[in-house]
Design a protein around this nucleic acid. Sequence first.
DNA 1: CTGAAAGCGCTTACAG
DNA 2: CTGAAAGCGCTTACAG
Lengths: 345, 345
Amino acid sequence: MAENITIKDIARICGVGIGTVSRAINNDPRVSEKTREKILRAVKEHHYVPNNSARNLKMTESNTIGLLFSGIDNPFFQGMISIFENACDKLGYAFFLYAVRENDRVENVAMEVCKERRLKGLIIMGGQLSFPNRRLDSLGIPYVLCTVTVPRDGKELLCSSVSIDDEKESCRAVSYLCEQGHRRIAILAGRTCESPYGVGMLRLAGYRRALEDHGIKFDPALVAYMSEDLPEYSMPNGYDTMKRLLETGVDFTAVFAVSDTMAFGACRALREAGLRIPEDCSIIGYDGQYYTEYMTPSLTTVVQPVAEMARKTAELLDDAVKKKAPPVCVIYDAELRIRESVRKI
Amino acid sequence: MAENITIKDIARICGVGIGTVSRAINNDPRVSEKTREKILRAVKEHHYVPNNSARNLKMTESNTIGLLFSGIDNPFFQGMISIFENACDKLGYAFFLYAVRENDRVENVAMEVCKERRLKGLIIMGGQLSFPNRRLDSLGIPYVLCTVTVPRDGKELLCSSVSIDDEKESCRAVSYLCEQGHRRIAILAGRTCESPYGVGMLRLAGYRRALEDHGIKFDPALVAYMSEDLPEYSMPNGYDTMKRLLETGVDFTAVFAVSDTMAFGACRALREAGLRIPEDCSIIGYDGQYYTEYMTPSLTTVVQPVAEMARKTAELLDDAVKKKAPPVCVIYDAELRIRESVRKI
DNA sequence: CTGAAAGCGCTTACAG
DNA sequence: CTGAAAGCGCTTACAG
């Protein structure tokens, strides 16, 4: 193996100064064609790879945008990443992806990455964040949250975000169930310990509002909270939660699951109990994940416009970086995609 | 926002030298308790975050292991990442995760990351690699492939790898189908253009071997290759491929899909054609992804021992780093998990 | 167009 | 236990 070869070696080999090598590599126009060629040939021949640490250390600006995302195994984020990447590309930024590990806090990682790569802006997806968040604000660069809504503190907007209105969309989904004639509607809800701003609680609130709107009395016996022992919003948790509800013996004709993964697990539990979907029990999911279309029956679900959300996020960040635009909170409409898992009764 | 505060600032604030600050931060025992405390307090108070670029540049050793993985949206990799992380932790390494983007080549990213973080070793998952691979070898640090088998070049082993024997396991799965009385077995195979060492081809080879073993004549009409226009090994592709096969009108009583995702999509196509699973058509998947258990019927599939594979990968790399152990090629047995999607005829 | 030099923010021998 | 100094590999004014 070749020893670590540096810019100095290339300079020596070519008989030029290191500054010239640096310029040639970085496509600086102030290098003669001949010199550039000679240098690039040497670079290739000796497999020279620039040291990014040295580069980042010296560079004052990097024009890169970072995407910090928590939950590498959350299928909901799938596909969004490449959209961010393309969007940043089009806006002329380099793109740096960073997966926040379970034991790390978003804020800490943000600070580190920020210094290390001299980021221009940050996109944050997922993760537990509290607001107002001084640590994030002290970053000194614009950031926008995607998929997370920031609670408003009085009237002042704390930072940019793009999301959907979880309460409203849940309400719409459950209203649809009501309109199909369902009166006994169960919900597979978030953990009881979840923050009131967490999506689980917001979706539960939407459920309650829909019932109220349709003159149906809220029945606590129809609320099944996710298990604390299983991963949140996971299939096993959906299965377990549905099973527990079934065991209580309450009767219901429809189920609203707060995520597609939960719905998926719940379907299994329903069938194991001998119930057909949608003949004996209707079910509705949330998120609009790609696989819901291929389920049998295909799942009626609240589809989040993830592509648009990702694009908008990049755009907002760009505005903040280039024009120092003030924070905005963009809320998209979701779409209730009606498929086969709900029947009229 | 506080301006970029450096180790120098902390040193000035505390009235000590920068070397002392560096030692205090890095838990060097050669710092008095009093000084350390003073420094750490200042660090906290001023939100000092070390610049990793500078750190990496100066450090001669880092004791970190990198995981390069391609296909961030491949659900098969889900869950493996945290196992790698824990394994590295236990072995005393820091862990650096790097998602290779679609347009990047694994080798290039490897070289960059290697220099940047002074890696001790590298784990590579997924991605298109060719062998022998000079670029990877010129890295100068040990690396091990996980989930990818390296073709042997004569008798010399080119690098360490841990994987399963795709041909053998496919053969086993299809043999099981034969033993259940199936004679007309279709396969949803990889793309025709795939490399002969790609998993798609290996699994097809296993299928053919099983048929032969059971005295069943290979019928090309029963082979449906994945579409080139849809993402490889995806649900839509499984759906489309199954649908195309159905349209040809060939008859079959069972389907072997080369991945669980393909099987998932195929199930949908089968049902749309009015076929019940497994009454009218049996189906078997490959990989053992988490959701197969919650499908209805639950999917019989070839389960890869991903947790063990990840652990072993870390162990092999550790051996290579610490003891300069020569490359080994570990091949695990997969398990044919028999569930509900296959019936005896 | 090119080179010599300063310096990015750290770590690490080397003295004391 | 602590400080002053060298230097990691680059980029970037500054001269020429």
